[in-house]
C-alpha cells in the first residue's frame, strides 16, 4: 500500500469513525431532518416549492461538507503540530505530495459519507418533484470540487499559520463570505459587485448550477461554466496547499 493511501485510510478512519466525525454526521442529519419535516403538512406546495427545498438541501449539504473539510484540513497539519506529531511525520521518508494527498483522505471520506446520508433525504422530499437525479448529479459534480477545495484551503492555512486557532478563524471567515449566497437571494447579488463576486466565488458557482438544474430544469451537462469555476477553485487551493506543504518545516 502506498504511503499516501495508508495516510488517507488513517485520516478517513479517524474522521468518519471517530467521535468527532460521528457527532458531525449526526448534526448534519438533524439539520436535513429539520428541513424535511418543514414540508410535511403543507398541502399547497407547487412543484417549485419542492424543487426549492431540494435546491436548499443541496446548498446546505455543500456548506456542511465545506465546513467539515476546512476544519479537517486545518487539523491535518495544524492539529498535528499542536499535538507534537507533525515533525515525525515530516521526517518520515514520504514525499510531501503523498502526505498532502493522504491528508485529504479524511475530507474525501467524510464528504462521501455525507452524500450517502443525504441521499435518502433527497429521495424523501424530491422523488415526487422534479429533477431529483440531475440535481444529485449536480451536487456531486459541483459540490465535490468546492468541498475538496476547502479541504485544501484548510491544509494550506494549517501549514502557513503557526496557530491553529488563527487558521481556523481565517478559514471560517472565508467560508462564511463564500457561502453568503446561501442567505442572499439572487436579487441581492445583481449589483456590479455582486455579479463580480458571483463570477469568481466557487460557492456561488455551485449554487447557481444547482438553481439552473433543479429549479430551472436545465441539463446537468450544460453547467460547464459553473463547473469550470469550481474546478479552478480546486486547482488553485491544491496548488496553495502543495506550496504550503513544501515550505512547512515544523
Amino acid at each position: 500500500m502506498s504511503p499516501a493511501l495508508r495516510i488517507a485510510r488513517k485520516e478517513a478512519g479517524e474522521l468518519v469513525l471517530g467521535l468527532r466525525g460521528q457527532l458531525w454526521l449526526a448534526v448534519t442529519t438533524a439539520v436535513l431532518s429539520g428541513f424535511s419535516l418543514l414540508l410535511v403538512g403543507s398541502k399547497e406546495l407547487s412543484l417549485l416549492d419542492n424543487a426549492q427545498v431540494v435546491y436548499d438541501m443541496a446548498g446546505l449539504v455543500t456548506a456542511l461538507g465545506a465546513l467539515l473539510a476546512v476544519i479537517a484540513g486545518i487539523d491535518a497539519i495544524g492539529g498535528e503540530r499542536e499535538r507534537g506529531s507533525l515533525l515525525p511525520l515530516l521526517l518520515a521518508p514520504v514525499p510531501r505530495g503523498s502526505i498532502l494527498a493522504g491528508k485529504l483522505g479524511g475530507p474525501v471520506a467524510a464528504w462521501g459519507v455525507m452524500l450517502a446520508l443525504a441521499a435518502p433525504y433527497f429521495w424523501a422530499v424530491g422523488s415526487t418533484g422534479q429533477n431529483l437525479v440531475s440535481g444529485m448529479v449536480a451536487l456531486l459534480a459541483l459540490g465535490t470540487p468546492v468541498v475538496l477545495g476547502f479541504g485544501f484551503l484548510g491544509v494550506a492555512l494549517g501549514a502557513w499559520m503557526q496557530s491553529g486557532r488563527t487558521a481556523l478563524s481565517v478559514a471560517l471567515t472565508g467560508l462564511v463570505l463564500s457561502a453568503s449566497p446561501l442567505l442572499l437571494g439572487p436579487s441581492l447579488r445583481q449589483s456590479a459587485i455582486g455579479r463580480m463576486f458571483d463570477a469568481v466565488n466557487p460557492f456561488s458557482a455551485a449554487l447557481n448550477g444547482f438553481d439552473a438544474v433543479i429549479i430551472d430544469s436545465q441539463g446537468a451537462t450544460t453547467q460547464a461554466g459553473h463547473a469550470a469555476v469550481a474546478v479552478a477553485w480546486l486547482a488553485l487551493t491544491a496548488w496553495a496547499a502543495a506550496a504550503a506543504m513544501r515550505r512547512v518545516s515544523r
Binding site: L32, L37, L39, L47, Y121, W123, A124, V125, S127
Partner: peptide
C-alpha cells in the same frame, strides 16, 4: 402529492 409524509417521516 409533492411531498409524501410516508416517505419523509421515516427518513427524517
Amino acid at each position: 402529492p409533492v411531498v409524501e409524509s410516508g416517505r419523509v417521516l421515516p427518513v427524517a
